[in-house]
Amino acid sequence: MSFVLGRLGQTVLVLLVAAFVSFSLFRYVGDPVNNMVGQSASLAEREAMRTALGLDDAFVLQFARFVGNALTGDFGMSYRFGQPVATLIAERFPATLELALISMLIATGVGVPLGVWTALHRDHWLSQALMAASLIGVALPTFLIGIALILFFSVWLGWLPSFGRGQVVEIGGWSTGLLTTSGLRALVLPAVTLGVFQLALILRLARAEMLEVMRADFIRFARARGLKPRAIQYRHALRNTLVPVVTMIGLQFGNVFAFSIIVETVFQWPGLGLLVIQAIQFADVPLLAAYLVLIALCFAVINLAVDLAYVAIDPRVRSGGGVRGTV
């Protein structure tokens, strides 16, 4: 329990630092006033705008106001859209989160079993074919995979939609595409595109870890105890490969958010990625700052989940000892 509380404290600290960095960094990325007023605006008009936006106040004061407002869910108004940032993000976030979660689910659900299988059947032709394929999966750029999938499944076969999110259902302010057929169909290609790289990575790591563990003394001793191969492979070997694999999955979640910008562009997926690209072009500080804080929050939550997973998997963490494979 104290472990969890300590982790929560760290999480809050991390979020504050992330908020500070994002806020202070973007304060110096271009002058939003320049973008908001026309070229012909006078200096007085610019000053008036600056004051109205609170950009004149001391830096610390601006940051304190930013954090205070953020706690109430208020990230200010977007310079570009003239709407509350919170509303803009709330509209787009579900799409990105669903995309990221489903693609990670595919990557883990397929990657781990395949990795284990290839480790246990090293000389099988299929295992070697999978390893070769996983190299391609790691090497191919995401946008290329997306375009290839669109060409194949949308243009040639006409099976799946090539863009958009399909029909969505509102549940308590959360718009989900997971409950309608068209929503699910629209999710397949982007989720696979986003997941291919992660799948290949997880497959290779799971295989390497499994091979490593299968050479361990306690596996040899388990064989000397006469245990059945299934018990050795799954009860002993697989569990011992899980800690590094879970670590990796946690870390990769961040990359999934990053790559989702590309995937959302390719598939015109109405998520945060598209919004952020526009915000970057426009130096839309409130939107960008809020986006970064949100991403930091996602990271923090995922890391917390990863830590809790360690506790569930490895008794050495429970008793406060070190754990193998933490990064």
């Binding site: 306690f218 388990a222 006469g226 002993h236 011992n240 008794p315």
Partner: peptide, 21 residues
């Protein structure tokens, strides 16, 4: 036969046991 009729003891007790069980 292994473990039943012919059992084994290995060198390093620190690594002979599954750490997660």
């Amino acid at each position: 036969l292994r473990g039943r009729e012919i059992a084994a003891v290995f060198q390093d007790p620190l690594t002979s046991l599954d750490p997660l069980m």
